[in-house]
């Protein structure tokens, strides 16, 4: 059972997050994107990348339902964050779909077909507990932020200011979500450092982006996105893993130590 301080800290984190979101980060995908600045000459592969982002974002019903299941009993703040998170994430897929249709790269009918095809698959929650899912959110949102920024640069390269704006708005939400999750992980660390470190090591070791295996042609799509967005394993370490650990105040050495202790415990248990 979490302490009263845990709930108080999370409550404060959420109210700060939500107040700031209301004041500084609300946007309208129909009105705030400069749709008249779509570049009709933007190459097809750029649209394919946008469609891949859309594919991943479109599993929102699963993310909300299964994510909420993980945190609903944990705290009011996490339940409330999940509700708001779903609203903010919805705008990401709306904006991407608007871009694909307004640019003429896809028809509305193709979009409905794509959505229907996506929903033949179902996202599975990768981790069991609220704490593990919060840690997962820290890495995943940071990764999505970095990849959106890379693709914003690509859209700018092709003078597609509308697509660049879509990516910029989406990225701004993603980094705000990453920071919220990280702040909650910090509270978890204050409550139970050893257990949280073990969960960080576990989540990092088993981390996968959410579209794996459920977005059609995922491997080919991701290869395209990596190639043009210049995302490789060094980017994961440099821009995602190390910065998240640094923000959390966790060292690599601490994670090595918990992994070592876990191995020793596992071997001792197996020897009995």
């Amino acid at each position: 059972m979490a302490s009263d301080q845990f709930h108080e800290k999370l409550y404060k984190n959420f109210t700060t997050f939500f107040d700031k979101a209301e004041q500084e980060r609300r946007w309208n995908p129909y009105r705030d994107v400069p749709w008249d600045r779509i570049n009709p000459e933007t190459p097809a592969f750029v649209a394919t990348c946008a469609e891949t982002f859309l594919g991943v974002e479109s599993f929102l019903p699963d993310y909300i339902r299964k994510g909420l299941e993980a945190v609903r009993a944990s705290s009011w703040a996490q339940r409330s964050f999940s509700a708001n998170w779903g609203y903010e994430e919805l705008k990401h897929s709306i904006a991407l779909m608007e871009y694909l249709v307004r640019s003429g790269k896809r028809t509305q009918e193709q979009m409905f077909d794509f959505q229907a095809k996506l929903m033949t698959e179902e996202w599975r929650r990768p981790f069991d507990t609220a704490r593990q899912m919060t840690i997962y959110g820290s890495f995943q949102e940071m990764a999505t932020f970095v990849i959106y920024l890379r693709h914003e640069a690509l859209a700018k390269q092709y003078n597609d200011e509308a697509l660049a704006a879509v990516y910029r708005f989406n990225a701004r939400d993603e980094i705000a979500h990453a920071r919220f999750y990280e702040d909650i992980v910090k509270v978890y660390l204050e409550e139970d450092r050893e257990g949280t470190l073990r969960d960080i090591a576990h989540v990092a070791k088993n981390f996968e982006m959410p579209g794996v295996g459920i977005v059609p042609d995922y491997d080919a799509r991701i290869e395209l996105m990596r190639e043009h967005g210049h995302v490789d394993r060094d980017v994961f370490l440099q821009k995602i893993y190390f910065p998240v650990l640094k923000y959390l105040g966790v060292t690599r050495q601490e994670l090595v130590e918990v992994a070592r202790r876990e191995r020793e415990e596992r071997r001792a248990a197996a020897a009995q």
């Binding site: 060094d234 893993y241 190390f242 690599r252 050495q253 994670l255 090595v256 992994a259």
Partner: peptide
């Protein structure tokens, strides 16, 4: 050995050899 596995390996070597490798030098 993936990138995180490599970090664990480096961490173990750091511990045994009593050295510290800065994060940025592990990239690449």
């Amino acid at each position: 050995i993936d990138s995180l596995g490599m970090l664990e390996l480096v961490g173990s070597m750091e511990r045994e050899l009593k050295i510290a490798v800065p994060d940025e030098q592990l990239v690449g």
